[in-house]
Design a binder for these strands. Structure first.
Length: 152
DNA sequence: GCCAACGTTGGC
DNA sequence: GCCAACGTTGGC
């Protein structure tokens, strides 16, 4: 089993939206590196830290679990969708998505500042300079440190 | 709202 | 295949 961090802007989809919906499809990934993680590496049962970006404060706010592995992101086929990509064809889709289900919301969000201040987390991609990937893998111990920080 | 970082596009 | 221009992300 692997561990991931997914970013979402709470204005478009927050941890509370996921809590309400119980599960959702993670659509709109339009970056090849993120696409490769989704298509090739993300497996059912993997755990995902849910991160609020462009938020106040920016923070990891909860955990969800992968319940369905990569399948074509059909918003790419829909000219009405903001994620429409005419280069993605039904018979050979460019973009994929996964389904996640809500696990739990942190009692206390773990803010970006706290993560930056924790020397044990200095290698997490979240704090790398210029990191713009919307999802990426994290180590098991990084996952566990952040969970522990949310319980303090 | 600004702007650094960086991925993508398209002309050559 | 190079690289300038452009668009987007996301922290501040």
């Amino acid at each position: 089993m692997k561990y991931w961090l997914f970013k979402s802007e709470p204005e478009s989809y927050s941890i509370d939206d996921l809590k309400r919906d119980k599960k959702t499809f993670w659509d709109g990934i339009r970056n090849y590196q993120a696409r490769n993680f989704i298509r090739d590496n993300i497996k059912k049962g993997d755990l995902v830290l849910f991160y609020h970006s462009n938020a106040d404060p920016n923070a990891v706010v909860g955990v969800c679990e992968i319940i369905k592995e990569a399948y074509p992101d059909n918003t790419a086929f829909d000219p009405e969708s903001k994620y429409y990509d005419p280069k993605s064809k039904n018979e050979e889709p460019t973009w994929f998505m996964v389904d996640v289900k809500f696990k739990f919301k942190f009692k206390k969000p773990v803010t970006l500042q706290e993560i930056k201040n924790n020397s044990k987390l200095k290698n997490i991609r979240l704090v790398h300079r210029g990191n713009r990937l919307s999802l990426f893998p994290i180590d098991k111990n990084e996952y566990e440190i952040i969970i522990a920080m949310s319980e303090k």
